[in-house]
Amino acid sequence: MSLGEYLVKNWDRLLELTVEHAVIVLIALAIATVVGVTVGIATYRTQRPSKIALAVAGIFLTIPSFALFGLLIAPLGLGAKPAIVALVLYALLPILRNTIAGLRAVDPAVVESAQGMGMGRWQRLVRIELPLAWPIVITGVRVSAMITVGIAAIAAVINGPGLGKDIFRALARVGTPTAVSQALSATLGIIAIGILLDVGFLLLGKLTTSRGIRD
């Protein structure tokens, strides 16, 4: 069966898997952004804690995904939960690193003048530092999106949701007429999600950047 025929016949199911795939990636990114930005804010002023936080996030990213999924079965069982947790761990480093880099890149003179205007530490952070660092933070999220979209495919080995299911189903049916179309459509679907997210986060970054520093 050609890829075209296969797509027409399985459109509904593919769409459903694609949505599942995109949803777990977006959930993981949302959690990773909250965690990464919070840890970044808590550590960017200091050398040692920020280094330790980055090292830990780096270790998560270095652990092979298959192994991390395997390790998470023990505490979390099978399914979407361990899949999302693993994706969060993989997404942390780029977000954390860019949060720290972005906050450190804010001109101290700007922060001082905000202090001179009577802003407290919290106000300076929320109204001056974070908006100035935001373009760099959101590019970190964009990088994380690319990493997690691909890794999410492996979640299928622990019964996670998404297009990875079709890749493994195809593998189990080597030699049948639909196997190649099934694996190919799932792989292309994942790449399509990647491209959409890449463009989406680029636009979101432009839209959410403070008007004063837009180019």
Partner: peptide, 8 residues
């Protein structure tokens, strides 16, 4: 990077 290794 978004290309899934398992797919390839």
């Amino acid at each position: 990077q978004a290309v899934p290794s398992i797919g390839v």
